[in-house]
Design a protein around this nucleic acid. Sequence first.
DNA 1: CATGACATACGTACCAGTTGGTATGATAAT
DNA 2: ATTATCATACCAACTGGTACGTATGTCATG
Lengths: 201, 201
Amino acid sequence: MTRTKAEHPERKERLLYAAKGLMLDKGFVATSVDEICEAAGVTKGTFFHYFKSKEELGEELVERFAAHFAEQMREAACCAGDDPLDRFYGCVDLSIKMADCQDEKGCLLGTFVQEMHQSHPQIRKLCDKGFNSVLRACKADLAEARKKYAPKADIDVEGLAEHFVAITQGSMILMKAKGDRSIMKRTLTHYKRYLKSIFGR
Amino acid sequence: MTRTKAEHPERKERLLYAAKGLMLDKGFVATSVDEICEAAGVTKGTFFHYFKSKEELGEELVERFAAHFAEQMREAACCAGDDPLDRFYGCVDLSIKMADCQDEKGCLLGTFVQEMHQSHPQIRKLCDKGFNSVLRACKADLAEARKKYAPKADIDVEGLAEHFVAITQGSMILMKAKGDRSIMKRTLTHYKRYLKSIFGR
DNA sequence: CATGACATACGTACCAGTTGGTATGATAAT
DNA sequence: ATTATCATACCAACTGGTACGTATGTCATG
């Protein structure tokens, strides 16, 4: 097998991984390039070889994080079966599980948007895009569920999807404030109860 | 009236006000002391005369913000009447109104906790305290409402209070990502609908 | 004249990013 | 097959700027 370039993309991955961890803890601004390099075990030259700026790393990080999360959502929905409502419940349960997982430290989209929505429009845009892809997926399942279970009811699927994302984001803030991972489960349980009161199931 | 010290607390107030505005936009770390001083129209000497460090300003900011918000909640509850559920709806409506208000730029507790929960334990603690005072107030009204409207039902008032705070915090993140102030109204309308399905009113 | 309320200038540390280089392997000319 | 060329991958040392905080001073007031 002939290799031409990017012989060791491993280092770039290590940089992205290290940056993600540090930035979930301290945010984008408080995380220095030197720190990222040290955590990744590479030098600064390597960093600026792969990224033309810290901001560019941030952008790539957001894109990857969003893509990875969307992928997980799709998986969770599929695993939950064919029924649209079950599929959506699968997504909700995924969020519960993730919040409970020891090595999940939060959501980069929420973290980044808080500190950069004004100062870095490009990153704000990418975060929005990431949220939208989640919102779209939720909306799709919810719309199908409406068709199936309450075809005549006037159900605001768009708002329900937003509601879901808002609850997960807000729960993560409370989790960080309290250091209590059980919050997500409680809030999303209420959310599921609300859905049941709407869809009658 | 004899004044001993803090003759011109006006400057300190200006510093706190300027810092609040800047930090709601860019976060704590990205906001420099120089910037705060410039926005407040004072020199750095003044800053370090009133605060021994930037972190100390952050702490005072959190305490004030939390106290002010709690005060607004109490007012909103009182204005809404004597019925405990009405009182709580009053609080929810306050959050809707605040999100809609042009010069409200977010919640310092949520912003600070995101970037400092790991690195500044003291501030994390103060944010938690701030959340708790809101949670307590909500819980009190909700518990009374339960007694009045559903004395036999097994209603998780603590969880419902958390749910409320999570929704507001998460909605603010979505608002920042999308630049759309109408989100809070939609999510909290769903929340109120959920409450109605629980309390039958 | 001591103290509080500021202002000015500075020091040290750290930051993002650059520079100028080496090592390596692929490609191409000889 | 050997040499020359060149891009990629990486590194150590450095730069200019900015950050927080301090040292030192002034000035009004009680």
